Amino acid sequence: MRKQSSTNLENEMLINGNCDMAYTLDLIGGRWKPSILWRLAYGALRYSDLRRSLPAVSERILILQLREMEADGLISRKVYPEVPPRVEYQLTEVGRSLEPVINVLTAWGSENRPGSERKTPRCPLLTII
C-alpha cells in the first residue's frame, strides 16, 4: 500500500494527469504486463495456462499485475461457477486497442537492441500456448 500523501505519488499523479504518453506507459509498464497483454491478444486464457506460459513470474506478481490491469479496464476476468473453479482472462476493447502499441514497441526493440544483428521481432519469454 502506498502512502497517499507522498511526494512521489503526487508527482506520479501530476505527470500521468498531464501527459498522455506517461499515462499509457503507466498502464502497460512493469516487467510482466506487456507479456500478459501479448498472450491475451491471441485470445482468452485460463489462469493456469497464463501461469504456465510465464514460468519466470511468481504467482504473487502475476496475480498483482492481473488485478491492476483489470482495475485499469485492460482485461476482464470471468469466473465460471464450477468445481474446481475456472477463471479466464481476456482483453477488453480498451486492451485490444493497445495491440498496435505493443507491436510498435516490439518492432522498435528489434531494430534498436544493442548488439542485435536480427531485425525480426522476438520475445523469447513470450511462449504462446
Score class of each variant (00 low, 15 high):
2 R>K: 10
4 Q>G: 12
5 S>R: 09
5 S>N: 15
5 S>G: 12
5 S>F: 07
6 S>V: 02
7 T>P: 03
9 L>N: 12
10 E>P: 00
11 N>E: 11
13 M>F: 11
15 I>H: 02
15 I>Q: 07
15 I>N: 05
17 G>Q: 08
17 G>W: 09
18 N>L: 14
18 N>D: 03
19 C>S: 14
19 C>V: 15
19 C>E: 12
20 D>Y: 03
21 M>G: 04
23 Y>E: 12
26 D>C: 05
27 L>G: 00
27 L>F: 01
28 I>P: 03
29 G>L: 03
30 G>F: 09
31 R>G: 01
32 W>A: 04
32 W>S: 06
33 K>P: 01
33 K>G: 02
33 K>Y: 05
34 P>S: 10
34 P>Y: 07
35 S>D: 08
35 S>I: 02
36 I>F: 02
36 I>V: 15
36 I>G: 01
37 L>I: 13
37 L>H: 08
38 W>F: 13
39 R>W: 03
40 L>K: 00
41 A>Y: 05
41 A>L: 09
43 G>D: 02
45 L>T: 01
46 R>H: 07
47 Y>G: 03
48 S>F: 02
49 D>R: 08
50 L>Y: 11
50 L>C: 07
53 S>N: 11
53 S>I: 01
54 L>C: 03
55 P>Q: 06
55 P>A: 06
56 A>Y: 01
56 A>E: 03
60 R>N: 11
60 R>C: 05
62 L>K: 09
63 I>D: 09
64 L>S: 15
64 L>G: 10
68 E>N: 06
68 E>Q: 13
69 M>D: 03
69 M>W: 02
69 M>E: 06
70 E>Q: 14
72 D>G: 00
73 G>R: 10
73 G>I: 11
75 I>V: 15
77 R>I: 06
77 R>D: 00
80 Y>K: 09
80 Y>V: 12
81 P>W: 02
81 P>C: 06
82 E>M: 12
84 P>T: 09
85 P>F: 07
86 R>Q: 05
88 E>P: 00
89 Y>W: 05
93 E>A: 15
97 S>P: 01
97 S>A: 11
98 L>Q: 03
99 E>R: 11
100 P>A: 04
101 V>C: 05
102 I>L: 15
103 N>G: 14
103 N>M: 14
104 V>A: 14
104 V>F: 09
106 T>E: 07
110 S>F: 08
111 E>C: 08
112 N>E: 11
113 R>K: 14
114 P>M: 09
114 P>D: 08
114 P>N: 07
115 G>I: 10
119 K>W: 06
121 P>E: 09
122 R>M: 13
125 L>I: 14
127 T>A: 10
127 T>V: 13
128 I>W: 01
128 I>R: 10
129 I>V: 14
129 I>R: 09
